[in-house]
Nucleic acid binder design. Structure first.
Lengths: 369, 369
DNA sequence: CGTAGATATGTCTGCGCAGTCATGACAGCG
DNA sequence: CGCTGTCATGACTGCGCAGACATATCTACG
């Protein structure tokens, strides 16, 4: 081929040899300087860097990748959603990758895509990524993860293994879900309803399991599970159905968005949160403290998870022979705000429960003790 | 170097020549088939594809990029935020790029980063991207955009030009902000306050300008501008200050998150939305319909913007000589929900306005960040 | 002072593709 | 029938870098 030129046929971009000539050294020495190798004298290093700067030299990563067999790129398989959790995780991954000197190549798989995660992984391998991050895996994902490069699964509980070269990092969602549920039980609620995420998501199943564990541990009844799709709209829809039950005093929603939709539906049905029904969310989205009532929720340390996961992945990339490390699990927090309270005195149902309060002229029921 | 092998020293990945041999053709013919070139007989094409499939062949994109001078990769400079707008834009860009056969390389610049957007652009050029997307530009960004590859600036009004090879795509935020402001004026509010985003953002300045235009066009007073940082927390802080003013009947917030925080603060101050104060947001985040009161806001068609922008960018990449196309601008919507209403009867202030409702038992303490 | 190691640099080569050009085979047409 | 053009394929080459190996020079130490 002909060397790269500007659209106008301008001068070609300078190459390593050009820098070498300008600095009076060999191309190989330029390569050494640029890669920070040992055994380069300070004088040569300085001359090379000067020359590179003067010529406006930029390393050609394609050539480097071809010659070295490594691309210093990490592929990310993300779900095509703007949800706070996945988006935060992606942000954290990018920052951690950049800090480690890796670029990021992102592929989204709208759930149910052609090829799905497997196809995404293939396309990333084709691009020569050195490692792969699968963020918030869903059902079918476990299988294609047998890859020739290390894989980090984010959002699975720490220690999970799904493939030979797979690392998992994430919080212990089960424990978190248990904590959320126990918080409600501790307040005196006879049982806790659950508004789950889509069953295909590991995250949804973990939270469901944690909820079941907490109830089982105290021998409480497990009401039927409502399922949403993480969206506030689905939370609202579920809320309309739940509001019709007269044993409803507490709900643990699998994420904050659904919790907000749920509260909206309960309010529309004339139920007050938290006086009549308590609600706990999951994620602690930035809005959680500012909706009415402020949401009691569970905070996930997305940054820390992304950070730790990526460090482990980079380690696995750069030490192919080493044993796969295991993530520690990250500390986690229950943030108690105002959407939870003890159950109403007559929690055992009763006609009063559904007396419709006159809402005339009052959209927002002010919280009164 | 030695050819790539698995960690275990397993067999090297098959190359084009291997496929060629298996199919009984030359390497060049394999290349032709894989690139969909003309002048390949159906029989040969079939044999090559079969052989490639059988061997599990994957094209080496580094080699292709080196040989062809094109990487089929688009670089994205994003702001390191999980805000709904930027995140949605990024999603749209990824999908559009994938549809066009390009991969995405993402770099975040936490505002105020070392190097900032300029540095990010450099690192992307180094990676050999064929084009660059700058999402939601902020102040200093205009300058370094003189790049040797086409640049798409997303979130600037359509038609903006900031550099020689620059395309802009986005909605007409000014018009949108005007519409939001006029909606409030039409309801009878004497004037409208503005809760702006950070001044460095183009998006914030556009919205501010639109607000000013709408007020000026009707000869209304322009109250001092409150400024937030897009977050609900900053909206809350601004809300506390605004609540102290006795001319406050309507606020146009530059995004929905701040609007939610604002409403929270107003509520805490004993003001009802929309009876005492109307609030309009911007973006129509998925939660907007589910907070109390449901938020009147302005909807941005993020997907359409990303889509159109990326198509233009790809066109510019693949037709280097052509004139730069101009984006059309996208249709847009004011979504009226329940956070806006006519001003209270005695909007001209008066002691009643600030009668403090007894908040005894108020559960909600002012949220700390 | 000789020799083993550490230090510093260079030469040669190949990574796996796509560009360029050459070469056939054949069809259409006067 | 020969010439021109379209179609189909292959040989050769180079993109810009890093790996392998070969020197050289300098230090340390017996």
């Amino acid at each position: 081929m002909t060397r790269a030129r500007g659209r106008d046929g301008g001068p070609a971009a300078p190459r390593g040899v050009d820098v070498a000539r300008a600095a009076g050294v060999s191309q190989k020495t330029v390569s050494r300087v640029l890669n920070g190798e040992r055994y380069v004298s300070v004088d040569v290093r300085r001359r090379v860097l000067e020359a590179a700067d003067r010529l406006g030299y930029r390393l050609n990563t394609a050539a480097r990748a071809l010659a070295s067999g490594r691309s210093r790129t990490i592929g990310v398989v993300a779900l095509g959603t703007a949800l706070y959790g996945p988006a935060s995780l992606l942000l954290g991954v990018e920052r951690a990758a950049r800090d480690a000197g890796y670029a990021l190549s992102v592929v989204n798989t709208l759930e149910g895509d052609q090829g799905g995660v497997g196809g995404a992984v293939q396309s990333l391998l084709e691009r020569g990524v050195d490692g792969i991050v699968v963020s918030e895996p869903i059902d079918e994902d476990a299988d294609p993860l047998a890859s020739e490069v290390p894989v980090l699964v984010l959002g699975a509980p720490a220690g999970t293994r799904t493939g030979e070269r797979t690392i998992a990092a994430g919080v212990d969602s089960e424990a978190l879900a248990r904590a959320a549920t126990e918080h409600l039980l501790d307040l005196g609620h006879p049982t806790v309803h659950h508004l789950a995420g889509p069953e295909r998501w590991f995250a949804a199943r973990d939270r469901l399991a944690g909820w079941r564990q907490a109830l089982a541990a105290r021998g409480r009844e497990q009401p039927p599970v409502a399922e949403g799709d993480w969206s506030a709209a689905s939370g609202y829809a579920a809320g309309r159905r739940l509001a019709a039950r007269n044993d409803l005093t507490a709900v643990f929603a699998a994420n904050d968005d659904m919790a907000v939709g749920l509260i909206s539906a309960l309010t529309d049905a004339g139920l007050r949160v938290p006086q009549d029904v308590s609600v706990v969310g999951f994620d602690d989205i930035p809005l959680a403290a500012y909706v009415r009532p402020p949401l009691t929720t569970v905070r996930q340390p997305f940054d820390a998870v992304a950070d730790e996961g990526l460090r482990l992945l980079v380690h696995a990339i750069e030490n192919p022979q080493a044993e796969l490390p295991t993530a520690q699990g990250q500390p986690v927090e229950l943030v108690v705000r105002s959407s939870t309270a003890p159950p109403p005195a007559r929690a055992d149902s009763g006609p009063l429960r559904h007396t419709v309060r006159p809402l005339a002229g009052e959209v927002h029921a002010p919280p009164a003790a």
